[in-house]
Design a binder for these strands. Sequence first.
DNA 1: CCACCAAGTGCGGATTCCGTTGCAATCTCG
DNA 2: CGAGATTGCAACGGAATCCGCACTTGGTGG
Lengths: 154, 154
Amino acid sequence: MSKPKPTPLDDVSKAIIAELQEDGRRSYAAIGKAVGLSEAAVRQRVQRLVDSGVMQVVAVTDPTEIGFARQAMIGIHATGELEPIADALAELTEVDYVVITAGSFDLLAEVVAESDDHLLEIISRRIRTLPGVMSTETLLYLKLRKQTYAWGVR
Amino acid sequence: MSKPKPTPLDDVSKAIIAELQEDGRRSYAAIGKAVGLSEAAVRQRVQRLVDSGVMQVVAVTDPTEIGFARQAMIGIHATGELEPIADALAELTEVDYVVITAGSFDLLAEVVAESDDHLLEIISRRIRTLPGVMSTETLLYLKLRKQTYAWGVR
DNA sequence: CCACCAAGTGCGGATTCCGTTGCAATCTCG
DNA sequence: CGAGATTGCAACGGAATCCGCACTTGGTGG
């Protein structure tokens, strides 16, 4: 939600995040015991982390398991400013991931669709028509092999 | 964790997942009210969904916020069987995302690293040396614009 | 027909959550 | 300096939640 946070994030908060990366429903009391803080303090910090947009606790799934049959990464070549294009992509509900990159593509967007038709429509009607988009390349997902959220639990 | 799950997943479970995609810490009682089930039934279903590997409730963050400065998507061209390569990539802790794709790349792997040196080491020493990997292309992330987990909350 | 299994409900008791209060350390300026 | 503001944490009590268990209910198959 917010951006004004160049805070480096202290070790205790990192430990709290690590706990919640393992199990997002772990109790504040248990986390407190693990990181050496009271339950209320943990609750406060979690609230702050969520409010500041640093962390969110959510359910994640393999989309194919819940009826989204087609997924693809779209590599995009563009001209001009990239951020407005990224913003436009981000507004599409079928696009769940947008990154600006340095490499052979200017942008990457991950698309989750219900069918081939649906996927085709998103790419050709929603994405390729955006101003600034020169060309796209579709990398259709055949198999999702790993999906982890445990950075920092090294 | 498990694979023996061709279950299509019923509407109630989808609704539960949708609730937890909005807020992973929402109470079982509140979810039960929303989907029309008792608290205990919701608890059972969530437990089952997690145990079967369909869903997990976790904290997610923007890695740059917690000290991982460099991220990149690695596009990989390979020969032979792709699954063993995907498995090998999945074993690397710095790799948080692995997909087998149909397109100009055979595999995509997302890497989270602490520094340029770290990133370089992973790519050149860990990934490019894997048997079957012919060539790689690094798409360095400049800016993560969107990261959503709310499939099904359309 | 009945045993069996899966899934749901109802019900305490233990635990957790949550708002509030109080305290100590740190910041802030005049 | 030093009074006031701010921040972060501990403590606490009432409300809500979680959790395990026993008890229905609705298929399913022998």
